[in-house]
Amino acid sequence: MKPRNKKQQHIVELSGRLRPLSTPQMQWALNSTINHYGYRLKSGMCTCMKCGHEWLETRNGMCLCPECGTQIEIKDTKERVIREKSYFNIITTIEDYQVVRMFLMIVEMRKGMKVKPAYLEIGQYFIDPKGNKTVVAIPRTLGCYVDTFAFSAPLEIRNDGDAYMYVSDQWVYPRIKVTDTIKRNGFKNSVHHIHPVTMFQELLTNPKAETLMKANEIGLLRYLCARPANKSDIDKYWNTIKIAKRNGYKVKDPQMWFDYIKMLERMGRDLNSPSLIAPQ
């Protein structure tokens, strides 16, 4: 859809200024986000499906390609082609926006040939300093799968949806660039297997998320970002969490711990008692 206001017009302009994928980013995606195989014939001749190198291999399971050094899984088969795809994200900034860029990598590996993957940008999440998000992306088409996109369509302002939230929760390139505000609020170069869009929004708008991040309570932060009902639990039992933290208690399983706290509450017990809320 066309930009409806000056903010959306500015975001579309910023989207056009984002840099293309770099060689290290493409190489990381190829090496880390898909599985690699060696196809072996009955004669014992094995072919690395990544670089096309052939050698005599007698081992089973995992091994290293002697040519490119990639860890591959040996498969005894006469197949000659593998088709793989993966989604990955590049987290960066432009001006005062936190940006999560979503990419699709499509790989067709042919026996005896060096792989040549193709990359396509699915879209971008722009998160402003107030935690509001704007999606610039290609549209999703009708279909029974979540990730069905119109690859020939341009990147435009879109309504957020499950497809974009799904793609933005996949592999994350380890070199992450964040705004000064998010860095000040405790972020330290890892999303900790938390949805990056949700985590950045919470760090920008929720002081409790900032406190959990700075206190290294990653389990509770992951619990908070998982769904709105969990966020309500954090708000309701915040004083209990702080008492447990002051007494050196580490919440290893937030779901189990909150079930336990709710049980104490139903029994009419004191939720400010360290001996109860921070059990051995």
Rank of each mutant, 00 (worst) to 15 (best):
V167G: 06
T205H: 07
L142E: 14
A137W: 08
Y173H: 05
I194M: 15
L142Q: 14
T141C: 08
F187A: 08
D162K: 13
F187T: 10
M165N: 15
L204H: 10
F187P: 04
E156C: 02
M165Q: 14
N189T: 08
G143A: 07
M165L: 10
S152F: 03
K183I: 00
Q170R: 13
S152M: 10
R158N: 12
V136S: 06
T141P: 00
N185K: 06
T148K: 02
M213C: 05
H192I: 01
I194T: 11
F200V: 13
H193A: 14
V172Y: 01
L203P: 02
H192M: 04
P174Y: 07
H192W: 04
N159H: 10
P154I: 10
F200M: 15
S190F: 09
H193N: 13
G143F: 04
W171K: 10
L204F: 07
A153Y: 11
F187S: 10
V191R: 01
E156R: 15
R140H: 07
L155C: 00
Y145I: 02
D160V: 10
T205M: 13
A209D: 07
A137V: 00
P207S: 08
Y164Q: 06
W171A: 15
R175I: 12
S168F: 08
E210M: 12
G143N: 05
M165C: 06
I182T: 14
L203R: 04
A137M: 07
I176F: 06
D160T: 09
G186F: 11
P196F: 07
V178M: 13
L142S: 14
V172N: 09
A209V: 05
N206R: 07
T198V: 14
Y173K: 06
S152H: 12
I176A: 04
V197T: 14
T211I: 01
S168T: 13
F200I: 15
T205C: 02
E202V: 06
R158S: 08
V172P: 05
L142G: 09
D180F: 03
K208S: 02
L204W: 04
R158Q: 15
F149N: 05
M165Y: 14
K177I: 10
N185L: 06
M199I: 08
A153W: 03
K177L: 06
L212T: 03
K188I: 13
I157G: 11
T148S: 13
E210D: 01
T141S: 12
D169Q: 10
D162P: 04
V167C: 04
C144V: 11
A209G: 12
I138L: 11
L155D: 03
T198N: 13
F187Y: 14
R175N: 14
R140D: 04
E210W: 01
G161N: 15
K188P: 00
M199F: 12
S152Y: 08
D147A: 08
L142V: 11
T148G: 04
R175K: 14
S168Q: 07
M199S: 04
H193I: 04
R184G: 14
I182H: 03
H193G: 00
K188S: 12
H193S: 13
M199Y: 03
K208E: 10
